[in-house]
Write a protein that binds this DNA or RNA. Structure first.
Lengths: 218, 218
DNA sequence: TCAAAAGTGTTCTTGATACACCCATGC
DNA sequence: GCATGGGTGTATCAAGAACACTTTTGA
């Protein structure tokens, strides 16, 4: 019954399909959010992704999917982990190389801006709402970003080019899900010298204007 | 010319082959060593690995290869990174999920014990002696193990069940490639409480006997 | 008694934590 | 003049770094 004439790529041994899935994070209203797509077949939410083309590098595939699904490029993107349980997708053996990406709210697409049912969801979404093993992929990504925040300086990847220290602190608080001490936070990020003041301040705010900073090396 | 009758697994879209490669470390003579196999085709050295079977989990495939290639099981094994440049293997598109493993010298096979040309090599081996992108996989594994050593306690995975603090320190010095202060090292590992004294000492040594320790939870 | 590795404590420095008030602006 | 968020310093504590000598055994 299967149209085997359509199936024209043949191998001596069975080959799995390989996809990239990208856990895309942003900050909305001081909360860490993840981009998910509602599947038309069962209404479950899925991490965006797609097949790796046969002559395409994994990183390239991830960048391409990121552009296609979220409409962003030149953002933080890093490989996360590869998930390959034989039954993780009921249709076919699919091994997925998961990536995670940090996108600033100004670059991040508006949820549902294209035809697809995409939207930003809280990262503590229930397992049953997610398709396949995507709950575990998401958990893995959240753990990674929390861990990386402690010993790297990826926080400002979630902010626009110019930002205040208060905004940066909100990002850290959103990701770590705890309040931080303002004075200690400022001391720490300033002595790391990963961000530089741009000698401008916020305008038209109903309080004292805040100094703006930028990621170093821009 | 190709025996297409032999190639019986057919797909609508091309599928890459997927392998697992395992960077197997041990300590020999106080130096960090890696298990490599000499390839018969070009004499280059390769990290052991093999194809993932179509109904096999990635971790299971890695464990199987570890048993087949190095003859060890129940050792530390962790996924490292997935390498998938389209031209990394000239024969076919092969995506490899790399793992790394830490094996104690007493469990580690003797190099060349089976028919294959396997052997233990220094981790700072030259790039040109290694096949494919295995130099970068090895570098990635060495970086990972160095990083993990700082904030976890995986060092004793490279030692027999019972070991002295001095042996543990030698492992750390081998991996980090620097001398450590004995008093500070002992203070640190003992307060971490990951190892426990077994109230035995080394015997028949031409100096003061050393207390033996074991990984906690054995 | 000597060689060889085992074992041990204190001082100093550095980074992390805890904590409270004045400042600049728009309305 | 008041509401709002911006911005600052010091004292304490804990962890890491530097550093030298005595102990126990076999030969």
């Amino acid at each position: 019954m299967a149209l085997s004439s359509k199936k024209k790529y043949c191998y001596e041994y069975p080959h799995p399909a390989v996809t990239v899935d990208i856990v895309i994070f942003t900050i909305i209203d001081g909360k860490l959010k993840v981009l998910l797509i509602e599947r038309s077949d069962n209404g479950k939410l899925a991490i965006p992704g797609g097949f790796v083309e046969i002559n395409e590098d994994l990183d390239t595939a991830a960048k391409r999917e990121l552009a296609e699904e979220a409409g962003v490029k030149d953002v933080f993107l890093e490989q996360l982990y590869t998930f390959g349980a034989p039954d993780r997708d009921p249709r076919e053996r699919i091994i997925t190389v998961a990536y995670y990406s940090l996108v600033s709210p100004d670059k991040a697409i508006q949820a549902g801006s294209d035809a697809k049912a995409v939207g930003w969801y809280d990262v503590d979404i229930e397992e049953k709402k997610l398709a396949f093993d995507h709950y575990y992929i998401l958990k893995c990504a959240v753990d990674r970003i929390r861990g990386k925040l402690e010993y790297t300086t990826i926080g400002f990847e979630l902010l626009p080019e110019n930002f205040t220290l208060h905004q940066l602190q909100e990002v850290y608080e959103a990701i770590l899900d705890e309040k931080l001490d303002t004075r200690n936070f400022r001391k720490k990020v300033l002595q790391q010298k990963c961000i530089v003041p741009i000698h401008k301040v916020t305008a038209n705010v109903a309080h004292r204007p805040a100094k703006l900073y930028a990621k170093k090396g821009n």
